[in-house]
Simulated scan of single mutants.
Amino acid sequence: MSRPIGGRQVSATAPGKDEADGRWVTRYPVWSMAIGALSVSGSAVLLDLARTSPGTASFYRCALALPALLALAAAERRRVGAFPRHRYGLAVSAGALFAGDMLLWTQAIGEVGAGLSTVLVNVQVVMVPLLARAVDREPVPRRFLWWLPVLLVGAVCTSGVLEQGGTVGADPLRGTVHAVLAAVCYSGFLYLLRRGGHTGQVRQVYTAVVASAAVVSLAAGLLWYGFDPAPGWRALGWLLAVAACSQVVGWLLVATASPRLASHVGAVLLLLTPVGAVVLGAVVLGERPTPLQLAGCGLILVSAYAMGRGGTSDDGQGGSRRRR
């Protein structure tokens, strides 16, 4: 069985590989993606509680996740075999972009707030479908283009740069720049992660992504973003929590589900991440977004919802293609 991707025929994941990835995850990709996004949403708050440098946080959240991921990858390899060596390049590139996203985003947390930095970085809802259109020729729903200006206005309002004293971070302008740059890395990472899962062996690919991200984060931390080899037990405890809920559970679910959903559907579901982060930021950290910032969050979510609903009717195939 095969499914169309931008004019090409890509073989559907074989039953054995579906079993290796988990039957429930592969049968219900929408729910898997939603649960993965919500699992990732807690990382902003946990990183704020860890209070470490971006380089330290990015390295340890990957390194602490590797033992569990290596065990999962080894089990998958015994069942379905090793993934081809030529795919390592894709995994390494995805890992480098993931590291760039983490470093820039962690830097933005203190500058524009935990919840809002996550909202800003999720302009991926624009970039990922455009990448899929440009590279894979995946149709973009018309409503996507209609709602794009509203979505961008929402991102600007959410940043807090339009009002005096209306931000919850220390430097909203720098935070906005760092979050937008993180969004570029994030979008590239999501696109490559989705592509890497099209032929199965997702756990092995994702483990290589996280290993690559750890190496890049360590190098960037030593050169620019700061790295503390011994951040203390308290910080390590919070970073272990990030590794467990985000790297091991959240992103692995996203990596497994994303190839089975259309690009705009997966991008919309990932907007559950900023929603969860804003709620947790208010409850746990005492952040109080202003009305304009909340309105920006609303514009982002309404736009994304409208684009998601319009996608399948415009392209005519979105409902049948089991892709992210």
Results as ranks from 00 to 15, higher is better:
Leu162His: 01
Leu69Lys: 03
Phe98Asp: 03
Leu236Ile: 13
Asp18Thr: 13
Trp147Asn: 01
Thr26Met: 15
Leu269Glu: 01
Trp105Val: 04
Leu301Glu: 04
Pro274Ser: 08
Tyr186Met: 06
Leu240Arg: 05
Gly166Glu: 12
Glu19Arg: 09
Ile109Arg: 00
Ser41Thr: 02
His198Cys: 13
Ala170Tyr: 11
Cys157Phe: 12
His264Gly: 03
Trp146Ala: 08
Leu222Asp: 02
Ser320Val: 12
Glu19Pro: 01
Ala179Glu: 12
Pro15Leu: 14
Ala170Met: 13
Met127Gly: 08
Arg79Tyr: 07
Gly276Gln: 08
Gly42Glu: 09
Leu145Glu: 01
Ala20Gln: 02
Arg174Ala: 14
Arg288Cys: 02
Leu280Lys: 06
Phe144Glu: 01
Arg23Ser: 15
Gly281Glu: 08
Thr106Met: 04
Asp315His: 02
Ala155Asn: 12
Gln201Asp: 11
Asp21Cys: 01
Leu38Thr: 05
His178Trp: 13
Val210Glu: 00
Ile300Lys: 00
Ser320Cys: 11
Leu49Asn: 07
Arg322Leu: 13
Gly298Asn: 10
Met127Phe: 12
Val184Trp: 10
Gly7Phe: 03
Ala211Gln: 11
Val216Thr: 04
Leu46Asn: 03
Gly95Gln: 05
Leu148Pro: 00
Ser263Val: 12
Ala14Val: 15
Pro54Phe: 00
Ala96Val: 12
Val30Leu: 07
Gly286Tyr: 05
Ala50Arg: 00
Ala57Tyr: 04
Arg78His: 09
Asp315Glu: 02
Gly232Lys: 12
Gly6Ile: 11
Tyr191Asn: 06
Ile5Phe: 08
Leu131His: 01
Leu72Arg: 02
Val268Ile: 15
Ala213Asn: 05
Val254His: 02
Arg143Gly: 09
Gly42Pro: 11
Gln204His: 01
Pro15Phe: 13
His86Phe: 15
Leu66Val: 07
Arg234Gln: 15
Leu223Tyr: 04
Val25Phe: 08
Leu270Trp: 00
Gly318Asp: 10
Arg324Leu: 15
Gly188Tyr: 07
Pro289Phe: 07
Gly166Cys: 13
His178Tyr: 14
Leu280Tyr: 05
Ser2His: 14
Val125Gln: 01
Tyr28Ile: 02
Val184Pro: 08
Gly22His: 02
Val268Lys: 06
Asp21Asn: 04
Ala295Val: 14
Gln9Gly: 09
Leu173His: 13
Leu64Ile: 13
Ala82Tyr: 05
Asp171Gln: 11
Val275Ile: 14
Ala14Trp: 09
Leu104Ala: 06
Gly16Met: 01
Arg77Glu: 14
Asp21His: 01
Leu218Phe: 06
Ala182Gln: 09
Val150Trp: 11
Leu272His: 00
Gln247Trp: 05
Val278Asn: 06
Arg143Glu: 08
Ala132Gly: 08
Gly311Ser: 04
Gly169Asn: 05
Ser39Trp: 02
Asp21Tyr: 00
Thr273Phe: 09
Leu269Val: 15
Leu69Ile: 08
Tyr305Trp: 12
Leu46Cys: 11
Val30Arg: 00
Gly308Asp: 11
Asp314Val: 04
His264Phe: 08
Gly237Arg: 09
His86Leu: 14
Val215Ser: 03
Arg234Ile: 12
Arg8Ile: 12
Gly166Ala: 13
Ser187His: 04
Ala267His: 00
